[in-house]
Every structure is written in C-alpha cells, then in structure tokens.
Write a protein that binds this DNA or RNA. Structure first.
Lengths: 201, 201
DNA sequence: ACGTATTATTAGACCGGTCGTCTAGTGCAC
DNA sequence: GTGCACTAGACGACCGGTCTAATAATACGT
C-alpha cells in the first residue's frame, strides 16, 4: 500500500469518526477534540486535510451523499421491477436487528435543519444530494408506471420529492417519539399510495 | 402592573430572545451570553428563572408548543368547515409578505433532530406537542369526513401524523433548497389528497 | 550511500468562548 | 427595619477552532 493510500485512509478515518459523532450530537454539539480522539489523529493533521471545521463538514456530507447514492444505484441496477426496488428502498429506512435503518443513519435527517442556516457549502452539498436521490426515485416511479408495478402519477418528480419529504419527516418524528411507529406508518401509507391496484389511503 | 407580571415579562423576554436565536443557529450553536445580550437580562437573573440551559430549552419549547396549540385551537374554534380549517392550517406553513410561515418559525423543524439525542426533557416536550397537534388534525379529518368537506380516511390518526410528517420534511427540504417549492408541492399534494371529490395523486 | 531539499505530518500553544456557580448588592413590599 | 425577589457580573474550569514552528518522511542529485 502506497503512502498516498495511507494518507487517504487517515482522512477517511476522520470522516467516519466525525459522521458517527454528529449522528449522535449534531454538528455544533461535537468539537474537533472529540472527533480526533475517536479517530486517533492529531489536530495538526486535521488541518492538513481540512482547511477548517466547516470544510470538514462539507467533505463529510459529500462523502455521505456519495456512498448513499452508490447504494441506491446498486439497488436500481439489481434484479426486480421498479415497484420491488422502491419497496426495498423504503424498507431500508427501518432498522433491522442486523443494521440501523436509514432513518437513524441519515445525515439529512440529523443535520439538515441545523446546517441549513449554518453553512452554505454544507447546505448546498445536502441539497444536491437530495436532488440526486429524488431524481432516482422519480425515474423508478416512471419505470414502475410503464411496467405496471407502480400506479401512474401525473407528476412523478413532485411525487418523488413529497415521498422523500414524508419519510424525512417520519424519521424526525421517530426520533422525537423514540419509536418506529412513524416509520411503519410511512411504510404502510407509501405501499398503499404506490400500489397499482389497491385503495388509496 | 404588579411585580409578578413584570417578572413574568422578564422571563418571557428571555424565552422570546432565545427562540429567535435558536431558529437561526440551533440550540447548541447559541450560547447563554448571546441570549442574555439580546434580551438585556443579566446572567444572575437567567439562573433565577431557569435551573440550567437545558431547563431553559425545555421551557422555551413548552412555551412555543403552548402558543402553537393556542393558535391551532383558535383556528378550529373559528368559522368554516373542517376542510377550510385544514386549508388555512396548511396555508400557514408558507410565508407571506407580512409574516414568516410555520416552516421557518417552527421549533420542531429547526430543533427536532438536534435535541432528540441531546435532552430527554426537551425531546418529550416536542413529542407531546406533536401528539397534541396530530390529535387535532385527526379530529379535523374526522369532522370533515362527516360533513363531506374532506374525503374519508380509513385511519385518520395515521393520516394526520403522515400529513404532519410530510410538511415537516417539506420544511426541511425548503431550508436546504432555500426555496418555497417543496412547501408549494406539499400544498398541492395535500389539497389533492384531502379533496372529497378530486383525483388522488 | 549520503546529503540536501521538499513535502507530509504533528504537537500543542493561543485566545476567545462556553456553562455554571457564587456572592454582594439593590429594590420593593410589608 | 426586615425579608424576599431580583440583579450584576466576577470567577473558574473547561472547551472551542485556528495557527505555526517543529519533526518525520520522502525524493532527488551526486
């Protein structure tokens, strides 16, 4: 392994530690000292990789968005019709015994409101990530309508964004209630809403 | 004016200043010094009224929830059928030239995710407030179904909570995009969803 | 192989800000 | 005059983000 790769690994360790901590404490609630203690990297190194805490935050969000979209793209490229892929996507929001769900690991859920007024670079990074995700959901809605696995919508783009808004909101309510109930309600309502043949809710 | 009233006014001024500041900077992003500078109250007084910053946060959220529910109750007690009242409620989320909308003045939107992991008293206060609001929305859905101004739902409680989740999520997306578009989409979709006679989306 | 220059990385000082506590002081009601 | 409510703000300990001098590692020329 070359030194360049080793350097990348150090930087990635800071990003990963930072993500885990901000998911618990928010962005302003976590200091650099904490992140560096968790990642085992000295402060001088931090400022070698990141110009500032804000630059670090922007990189952390970009890293998160890239990983998220890669997983969504893998889901889309996989087997199954569009309806089944959408079902799998919503399922991923709920926690399972083996892994946390998107709802508890999502940086849009945890940091969206906090950083929207704190940092334009961070806000724009999350906004672009949301746009990219919503575009993919809209494509799945169109594809599903064509092949009959999802009911057709007049405006799949708006519907996709409102579906994402609902799940985002349900995730916040789940955090406030310390309960999966809002996510399960979102799951049931979304299934009903997208069903090609069933009752609308 | 009695001293008791004057004392209440001082306490209220701290709460109001605090609210304005956390709406911009989040809870962890605002220090006591800033709140006290804005409210013109010395630190000794702060700790006379509030046992801690967390106790202050809990009181601020309780104060917000109380005011919010009072306005919702006034809306409910006013003229018009349930459908019209719901329309007015959703309209209040969007900003107008004369006032900010709920979306930009809502402490659930701004602080929900941040404080959910930070403070149980604050989390419970918001959670109870959300429950109280959702209960009222569900009542309006039931009343509207009865009088024919809202389409009937199989589960008005779940529908009310999911409607709130959608608007909460749309408000976060609006902050990230720095655009009203998500709120206007939520408005259009909600109108369609609740319409007693129109197409579902 | 060695010396030098350059680049990568680190240590931790610095200064401003944080929250909470404490105590002396002030104003007002009785 | 006394007691209570409220105030002023110093203080201490700790935390925050940033910066710079120093050190370590690497590349290159001889």
């Amino acid at each position: 392994m070359t030194d360049a790769k080793k350097s990348d690994q150090t930087r990635q360790r800071i990003l990963d530690s930072g993500r885990a901590l901000v998911l618990q404490h928010g962005f302003s609630g976590v200091g650099l000292a904490r992140i560096l203690a968790e990642s085992g990297v000295p402060k001088g190194s931090f400022y070698y990789y990141f110009a500032s805490k804000e630059a670090f935050g922007t990189a952390m969000l970009a890293d998160y968005v890239e990983g998220y979209l890669n997983r969504v793209d893998a889901l889309i490229a996989g087997p199954g019709d569009a309806g089944a892929k959408l079902e799998n996507f919503w399922d991923a929001w709920l926690s399972h015994s083996t892994a946390p769900g998107i709802a508890s690991a999502c940086l849009v859920v945890k940091l969206g409101s906090e950083i929207a007024d704190l940092s334009d670079p961070m806000r724009e990074t999350l906004d672009r990530g949301v746009d990219a995700l919503v575009t993919r959901l809209a494509s799945l809605l169109r594809e599903g309508a064509k092949e009959g696995s999802v009911r057709p919508f007049i405006d799949p783009d708006a519907t996709a964004r409102m579906l994402y808004a609902k799940w985002l909101g349900a995730a916040v309510l789940a955090k406030l209630a310390q309960s999966d109930a809002p996510l399960r309600m979102a799951r049931a309502e979304t299934t009903s809403q997208l069903s090609p043949t069933g009752d609308q809710f």
